[in-house]
Design a protein around this nucleic acid. Structure first.
Lengths: 246, 246
DNA sequence: CGGTATCCCCCGCGATACTG
DNA sequence: CAGTATCGCGGGGGATACCG
């Protein structure tokens, strides 16, 4: 079986493109406003550059993305075609489905670099002080090479940093990575976790107090989980002793 | 990279399951009313049995399908869970997107066995004569081993046959496979193609006249194509002489 | 019928190095 | 920065045989 499914069925033809590994995630990044190669790549830190390049080419051929060369800039600027725009509701519904029904998280799913990327897009700069604000994050139980990172809001322009940006830090946050991700996804309440000290803030009282209003959390955080808890799924498994393989 | 994407993002978690090869198509078959292994397999003639088995197991683990053992029957009866039902609009939208925007067909996409499967589900038995009706299809430019097949409607119960069912044939249809598929997908008008002889019917006049009302065509046939024609996409390619690889 | 186990090949993809 | 070329391996999945 080459690439496709060997069927004329429109669902198969759509799946040939969209059910390829990484493809939906690449499209999602462009939908989130990433138009340059490295911008997209920053939102997909676990994807290799060569594979991203290949996927972008495939999506162009499939008519989902358009790659435009710009004067003075190397590479291409990517944008959604009409076919790509038509996928927006589909991608959003898939994300909502994931929030409702996807499996529980494991340690392996907790990539701080992706959390950083998500947060830097969901900072409400209107509510932040004018001028520059430097936020520092440090996470327990995170891989050593990226347990600390920074987000700099410079008069409305937000940048993410994996190494110290040089400026003085205005506000620091310390938390367990899993707990913070659960809060980010809407499974825990941010203000409660700060109050009980599970998320610890260090800095001027004024900033500490304002911080929860800056962080908008995941856009999917309002959607409640529907997947039955672990207890039940464990019981289900014990009941039928299959699932040994796969 | 093991199976997943190593990210907590709900879209990634959803894609881990749903962007696997074949997965969406398996779900779609269950949505179309196939509940037993071979029933599902008949709607996916190019998928190997071992892979289908593996995917069913994965979908069960993911909470999309439920596999129930039934008294006296071997194997399992599959059904959608609530998580699976929640995917229905998503799968339908993806199919519509495919009808609108997917690539043009090639000879390799024309599997008569899948056409047979599709047709046997879209026969309006209410409009057919009572008792038994045997339809024969023969397609030019189809693989030799499945250029002819039969559909038997026995008092509302429709069966598909890849070998002669033994009964006398009531109505025969001859056409070029690509042309018929285009008609099935709604790109050509069935009655016009019959009138001009591109689709040829053999049998009693009464049945020939009624036939177009029996065949409901693809459920996506009302959706118009939006993808720009070949001329334009060829021009686009010549303009940028990339796309050599991939 | 209704699947599962095994074997084995091939290509998808990660790593690395390179170009303009 | 913005990608592309090459190489090598690992596992996804096709073919086949087998089981209840």
């Amino acid at each position: 079986m080459a690439r496709g499914y060997g069927q004329y069925c429109p669902l198969s033809l759509a799946a040939e493109v969209l059910a390829e590994r990484w493809t939906i995630l690449v499209i999602s990044r462009v939908m989130d406003g990433c138009y340059r190669f490295n911008e997209i790549h920053r939102g997909l830190p676990k994807m290799s550059a060569s594979l991203l390049s290949q996927r972008l080419r495939q999506l162009e051929t499939a008519g989902v993305l358009h790659a435009r060369e710009e004067l003075g800039k190397p590479g291409y600027t990517y944008s959604l075609t009409q076919a790509g725009e038509d996928l927006r509701p589909l991608v959003e519904n898939l994300a909502v489905w994931g929030q409702h029904w996807a499996r529980d998280l494991t340690q392996a799913d907790l990539d701080p670099r992706f959390l950083l990327w998500s947060m830097h897009l969901r900072l409400d700069v209107e509510k932040m002080p004018p001028g520059r604000t430097v936020l520092e994050f440090e996470f327990a139980n995170a891989p050593a090479d990226c347990r600390r990172f920074w987000i700099v809001n410079d008069a409305g322009k937000v940048e993410m940093c994996l190494s110290h940006p040089g400026f003085d830090v205005d506000l620091s946050l310390h938390a367990d990575l899993l707990l913070f991700v659960e809060t980010w996804r809407g499974f825990r309440d941010l203000r409660s976790e700060i109050r009980r000290g599970a998320i610890k803030l260090t800095g001027p009282t004024k900033l500490k107090r304002a911080f929860p209003s800056w962080l908008m959390l995941s856009s999917l955080s309002p959607f409640q989980r529907k997947r039955p808890g672990k207890e039940r799924s464990l019981a289900q498994r014990r009941q039928k002793q299959r699932n040994r393989h796969v």
